[in-house]
């Protein structure tokens, strides 16, 4: 079954038509990247999939979206967001301890048992490669970590609620190149268990990490397919112009 399918998806900010009739299906346990010039609607499309757009006043969404076969608006928003998690551009750990950051998700979804939480925290931090470094610093405030560690912690925070899909909006753009490489390696690890959709401004990154790729322009999904074919033989003229650098 497809992880995400959208048919005839439109998103409006008040009168502004931000996503235009997008139809796409995202395969499970793969990394799908979304590229395109600034303002083309990549973040908007991504936010649609876990309904973060609903927080913005005046947003209207039409069309059909299904996440693993369940309609986007068919369940309550909290359990949907549990299934479809999101990592943001700037690492945004809560100003709480490392432990409380990771435990936040499970706690709000009803896990109160201390031992169970301990296990979840250990498992989630291990999955993002932070356990060894942080296992003795769990009570430290998360804001004292490095940028890369903070972003990894945000990954761990998501994994703690065992989502099905991970949405990432330029997750490396606030990191240095070495950290970026390591976070990309982490993504390769994670795709064994999770479906990942990543928005990136960095075309090399899209080429490096993703199997599938979508190119967006002015709210339209111009082209969608295997990453290597998009980068080597794009079928649309506009895609070609973009990846050869003729657009900003």
């Amino acid at each position: 079954m497809e992880a995400i399918t959208a048919r005839g998806l439109n998103v409006y900010y008040g009168g502004f038509h931000a996503i235009k009739d997008v139809t796409v299906s995202v395969a499970p346990r793969r990394i799908t990247s979304l590229i395109g010039p600034s303002g083309c609607g990549k973040s908007t499309l991504l936010r649609t999939f876990n309904r973060m757009n609903d927080l913005i006043a005046g947003v209207r969404v039409t069309g059909d979206v299904e996440i693993f076969g369940r309609p986007l608006y068919g369940e309550d928003v909290h359990s949907l967001r549990r299934r479809v998690g999101m990592v943001f551009q700037r690492p945004n750990p809560f100003p709480l301890s490392v432990y409380d950051n990771v435990a936040h998700g499970p706690r709000v979804h009803g896990t109160t048992n201390g031992k169970e939480l301990d296990e979840i925290v250990a498992r989630s931090l291990s999955a993002v490669g932070l356990w060894e470094t942080l296992k003795d610093r769990l009570r430290e405030i998360a804001l004292s970590l490095s940028g890369e560690q903070q972003q990894r912690l945000c990954f761990a925070r998501l994994l703690a609620v065992q989502p099905e899909v991970l949405l990432m909006d330029e997750p490396c753009s606030a990191l240095d190149p070495i950290s970026t490489t390591r976070v990309e390696e982490l993504m390769q690890e994670l795709k064994k268990d999770y479906t990942i959709v990543i928005v990136t401004h960095n075309m090399q990154q899209a080429a490096r990490v993703s199997e599938d790729c979508g190119f967006m322009l002015l709210g339209e999904l111009v082209e969608f397919g295997r990453t290597d074919s998009i980068f080597t033989k794009p079928s649309d003229r506009r895609t070609e112009d973009y990846i050869t650098g003729r657009y900003g």
């Binding site: 967001r81 999101m86 809560f94 936040h104 945000c154 925070r157 998501l158």
Partner: peptide, 23 residues
């Protein structure tokens, strides 16, 4: 961004206020 991060995990507004915004 704190609030967004919490809501994106599926927390309700109240849980977000209580567990993230208050601290």
């Amino acid at each position: 961004s704190y609030k967004q991060g919490s809501l994106a995990l599926g927390a309700t507004e109240w849980q977000t206020v209580w567990r993230v915004l208050f601290p």
